[in-house]
Nucleic acid binder design. Structure first.
Lengths: 341, 341
DNA sequence: ATCCGTTGCGCAATCGTTTGCGGTTGATAA
DNA sequence: TTATCAACCGCAAACGATTGCGCAACGGAT
């Protein structure tokens, strides 16, 4: 039994398809009696509109492309929840387009968005996308787009990102304020703009307090396993910090157990702080203070902006760059605030 | 500058749209010279096919619906990676349809799949979906579907799930074999079939070894925060186990720090084991042995089955129920295997 | 009896592609 | 010279829904 079309309904009643179409959307041109009858029959025949046809006619789908560097358990699940929160009540759906950290795949993903007439695109770039490539990709895409989190320098498109430099600086200062002086840092992939900015903030905090910056005290890790290695290296080289800044949840999950494993005690021998989405720090004991990198919030903001672009006249507005700032959350290890995330 | 259509290309060359269409797909009816010329012009005009139109004509999209109870950082990111791995090379894309643990939203999501002529559906049910509702939803959907992980009893559709009972039993036996006798368990939402089966496995292991089962030693937690509470309650009531089985990563993240916080030492005072996707256990020190609930593997399996249904004659085959078994991974806490997840 | 204005519905084009079929060439065979 | 047959390409009808326009019927006003 195939799905019934508007034509089937029309034939069944001996009326024109256009009449059915109008009746179903309560067009006043159709008499009340017939209108009800049509609705009845349509329901009985379990008619539902074929959205492919509707969208072809309307020249637009209600699909939003989500182009992200990779599907990870960090950050993006929150972002997606935030986005969904905004999209769902407005009838849009999200299409996942993971790029697996490959600029090539990223380009294909964007092409997909164009060919399928998606309503708009939310994108976070891979760690290997060059600013020039990113620019040209989005430019030729010619469709509403909002960049979030992993942005590129000087992009003339709307964006929603964390105040990275400031967040890292405040985190580091928090360590300094609590009396630490030999402060180490573990950062993400050095290609990323957010890494560069967070490193800058880290350095700024040090120099503001007259503390020396030592190359030996900073490490870069592409994932949790590398973060684990970073810690081991530092221990092996006997550059033992009395405090450690970790720029992300993923790094925490690699580095934190590595610290404990090496025999160093937290926080007695080494204070820690990180930039986090908020869930992970409460899952460790002793807990970790963090600057809240609110994934859901960023997702919501980005989605709202995109909906704005889509439903307004998309061509005019100047790009807006929203920087959301991170709130410091201090975790008393005796009474952690475990949120539902 | 609007996107150019096949007609635009045709007009530019003074040929018929059908000729362009055929030329672009290397149909032998079109002469080689013209064929090349058309391709040249098409590329020059940056023509790309409008997939909406193609799909309307072809009566099928290359979109696969992913209906899951909720977007969490646990399990589903791995599942999605597994699915993508299979889908991407075949040109399918994934549409996220989170139900937020609401059966109503779940029903809407499935309706969406129907109306948009998605090629197929991968579904994991919410904890509140009744077997009858699930059955009727999928039946009336009338489209290729594979259920994974959170299934329902006696569903006449293909499914890929973990061998839950067996996994929990083996995990519990592992604790028993290492000499533990007062074994506690923290489980997920009691509505879930996987919870029931894992609880069954837990009990079976106990009874196999002649150990008593005590209601006081099992707790149910809907999320990490509740798992934290479970541990506190057990401590408060002084039902102190010498080993703890945790049925999921999410529960680990709530319970593990709670145990440490209460002063109990792992593994000296309390051995732990869990069922896990594999990443989390290595992120704790001391590490946790686990039975591997391979998200990516389940995702791959489910996707493969679905593709099979889609590309074969979908109507004939009897439903297959695949149970993947979990491998025991013992973590030497001194040298944890941190995988990239 | 004529004119006008509603009311209620059908006709047909359209969105962009695909595809069965038919028709026009030119060359080759009879 | 004519029948035959490729080789090449165009025509038009789909896919399923939407929508501007036209038009019949009817009632009321003049």
């Amino acid at each position: 039994m195939k799905r019934s079309t508007i034509k089937d309904v029309a034939n069944r009643l001996g009326v024109n398809p256009s009449t059915v179409s109008r009746a179903l959307k309560d067009h006043p041109d159709i008499g009340l009696a017939l209108r009800e009858e049509i609705k009845r029959v349509a329901a009985e025949m379990r008619y539902t509109p074929n959205q492919m046809a509707v969208q072809l006619r309307q020249r637009q789908s209600h699909l939003i492309g989500l182009v992200i560097p990779e599907i990870t358990m960090f950050f993006y699940p929150s972002v997606i929840r935030g986005i969904e929160e905004v999209l769902e009540p407005r009838g849009y759906q999200l299409v996942m387009l993971p790029s697996n950290e490959s600029p090539l795949r990223e380009a294909q993903n964007l092409r997909f968005c164009g060919e399928n007439q998606l309503a708009g695109v939310l994108i976070s770039f891979t760690r290997h996308t060059s600013p020039a490539d990113g620019l040209s990709l989005l430019t030729r895409l010619d469709m509403p787009v909002v960049v979030f989190d992993k942005s590129l320098p000087d992009l003339p498109f709307d964006s929603v990102i964390l105040e990275d430099e400031e967040a890292a600086c405040r985190a580091t200062r928090h360590l300094i304020d609590s009396g630490c002086t030999r402060i180490g840092g573990i950062f993400g992939s050095p290609n990323l703009l957010i890494t560069q900015k967070r490193l800058q903030g880290f350095r700024r905090a040090l120099s503001l307090s007259g503390l020396p910056f030592s190359e030996a005290m900073v490490r870069f890790a592409g994932d949790a396993a590398e973060a684990d290695l970073c810690v081991r290296e530092m221990i092996a080289l006997e550059v033992i910090p009395d405090a450690l800044f970790m720029m992300s949840d993923e790094i925490v999950m690699g580095a934190y157990p590595a610290i404990l494993r090496s025999g160093i005690r937290i926080p007695e021998n080494c204070s820690v702080i990180c930039i986090s989405d908020g869930f992970i720090p409460g899952c460790y004991y002793p807990g970790i203070s963090y600057l809240h990198h609110d994934g859901a919030g960023i997702g919501r903001e980005a989605a709202l902006r995109l909906i704005g672009l889509i439903e307004s006249d998309r061509s005019v507005a100047l790009p807006e760059h929203r920087m959301v700032n991170a709130e410091l959350v201090e975790l008393e290890s005796t009474n952690p605030v475990l949120k539902g995330d």
